[in-house]
Design a protein around this nucleic acid. Structure first.
Lengths: 222, 222
DNA sequence: GGCGTTGGGTGACAATATCACTGAAGGGTC
DNA sequence: GACCCTTCAGTGATATTGTCACCCAACGCC
């Protein structure tokens, strides 16, 4: 029991809730484990609850009519899937899809409990509102990048973000194309150029960052 | 007094509120009038309240570092500015800006009142959540269009949307470029092509739709 | 080894963006 | 009216990005 309650403390904004509310939250929620590569929500998988990530990472992406994908943002441990969840709670049709990138442990809060918490706790409302706001600014950023950003600059930035743990990166050109919403050939050419300039080394399915500082310099030249 | 209360009935989702809540809402809010062309929120104009539009239209757009603009969505009468307002309430830095396109009458609900309503009324929460969800799907649509859409198709669709009242459209190429987040020259060329194909007629600052059905046909060929 | 699948390279071409101009249209002013 | 100034639109040249149609190499599997 005491063990179960611990997860709340990991969430900025939930840890300050009154004890009674915390108890309510713990009582009504369920911890779940999901293996990597699972679609946790999306067209065809509509959950009826809000997810709080304890461990792991969820990638949220959108597939266009033409079949091409673009990554919108990622939900990390300590964050919640408020945004797409809202679309579902409001019964709005939506086209985004959430996929676990790692094994994920999450807390599922049913709609009813979510609603009672919204009613009863100012702190909880602030938590949700703030989470929303952050996602929205993420989306604004995506729009800005896609509309006005240069591909090489965006790719440089994404390489750095994806290789936060070490200089090795196990990813295909196609996956990188999906990250930026472009075509594989474009990624291939830009990476080839990066290689010629000594920024990276490549082999099938793997990229090694050789010169982070120069990659960062390019990424900054937005 | 009774007159003041009428505005609530115009909002789907607010009209079903209990009378006590309605009275509270009316008591705590203020009706305001804003002339066309005013920045109602944005960097440099941070209001501390949520706006409900009674009349008129607000255009929400974003300016990139490079100085280019893109229109994100419009808030029409009967809707509220939930999205960007949330960013402000959550004290998130944001880059979007709201400009009145017509004279606007709006109801301003201060943060405190908003919060009390969120706490006290399930209907109000649903209203806000639904409004959020709709905006978010709008943003998803923008991302999809910008990333994967063709310029001529997007422009055709936008011309139809902007000319909802009549076939005359008083707008410059630059304004249309801002609508789609592209460059004026691109719009000039596409419009020139539309003109050659007999879709439209042009003169300085004015566009006349000549063949809505063929424009619509192009717009549909997403 | 043979074979199928996936990942990656490349040339040709199309679409869009950028740059650097040009001139035309309209609104003032005298 | 003529003159000037600002805004709006047209255009060629060039760069960047996207699309299409391939090719070949690497890897897993039998």
């Amino acid at each position: 029991m005491a063990d179960n309650r611990v997860w709340i403390e990991r969430f900025h904004g939930l840890s300050t809730l009154p004890d009674a509310v915390k108890a309510q939250l713990v009582a009504e929620s369920a911890v779940m484990k999901v293996p990597a590569g699972t679609a946790v929500f999306g067209p065809g998988a509509v959950p009826d609850n809000l997810l709080f990530l304890l461990n792991g990472r969820v990638r949220v992406q959108q597939t266009s009519e033409s079949g091409r994908d673009i990554v919108l943002y990622r939900v990390e441990a300590g964050e919640s899937c408020v945004l797409t969840t809202a679309c579902m709670l409001a019964h709005e049709p939506y086209s985004a899809e959430g996929v676990t990138e790692t094994d994920v442990t999450a807390v599922a809060i049913p709609r009813g409990a979510f609603d009672r918490l919204m009613a009863s706790s100012q702190d909880f409302r602030d938590f949700v509102l703030t989470a929303y706001a952050r996602r929205i600014t993420d989306l604004f950023r995506v729009i800005d990048d896609v509309a006005f950003g240069r591909i090489d600059v965006r790719l440089a930035g994404r390489l750095l973000a994806l290789a936060s743990d070490g200089d090795e990166l196990a990813t295909t050109h196609q996956q990188l194309a999906t990250e930026l919403g472009t075509a594989r050939e474009v990624i291939s050419r830009v990476l080839h150029d990066f290689q010629k300039r000594g920024f990276i080394a490549q082999s099938r399915g793997r990229i090694t960052l050789l010169d982070r500082s120069r990659i960062a310099q390019l990424a900054e030249s937005a």
